[in-house]
């Protein structure tokens, strides 16, 4: 082991890192190999399979989650880096809402933005972050803000409509 007083890296043996963080408002603790990405840890260790895997190199956005208030490609973050972080996944977005869906998720359905649905959890997370940072985005701003999330069904127009719809709903709330 490297010269360090940090015990956490060795807590459960040389090959595993113990990570304690908050996921969707609940405390979570996992032991993972150091190379395990947050994406894989969420999916495999925590069973939160709403976060999807496609390119696994930060190009498609299917694995987008919100970490400490900002979107992250969870394929490009080690689970170990999540120590102490506050993580929001798609499963946490509508928790506590009637029907289990938040206004944004409702808007996706209303606007017809969902086709095969595989990219949708990532799209929803990216859209949620966009609206938190820019509550009244223009079409260009939506396209820019969402451009890291690929949709091969190419429901882009419908997703833009869903984001606009949500912005309107939130403005009158």
């Amino acid at each position: 082991m490297i010269p360090t007083e940090d015990q956490s890296a060795d807590e459960v043996g040389a090959d595993l890192v113990v990570v304690t963080c908050s996921v969707n408002g609940e405390s979570a603790r996992v032991s993972v190999p150091p190379h395990r990405t947050l994406m894989d840890a969420l999916r495999n260790e925590l069973g939160l399979t709403g976060t999807k895997t496609c390119c696994a190199e930060g190009e498609c956005g299917a694995c987008t989650v919100i970490v400490d208030g900002a979107t992250v490609n969870s394929c490009l973050m080690l689970a170990a880096e999540a120590e102490g972080c506050d993580i929001l996944t798609v499963e946490g977005l509508g928790a506590g809402e009637p029907g289990g869906l938040c206004d944004l998720q409702e808007s996706f359905l209303e606007a017809g933005a969902v086709q095969c649905g595989f990219c949708i959890p990532g799209q929803v997370m990216a859209a949620e972050y966009l609206l938190r940072t820019n509550p009244d985005p223009s079409v260009d701003e939506i396209r820019e803000g969402m451009s890291g999330n690929l949709c091969r069904c190419a429901g882009y127009q419908r997703i833009v409509a869903a984001v606009e719809l949500t912005a309107r709903k939130r403005a009158t709330r």
Binding site: M1, I2, P3, T4, E5, D6, S8, A9, A14, V17, P33, P34, H35, L78, A80, E83
Partner: peptide, 20 residues
């Protein structure tokens, strides 16, 4: 692969030096 999260720059560079 090991993961190390140092608290100081000195620790960080020492770690790098250990496996340059």
């Amino acid at each position: 692969m090991r993961y190390y999260r140092p608290a100081t720059t000195a620790q960080a560079v020492a770690a790098l030096a250990s496996q340059p």
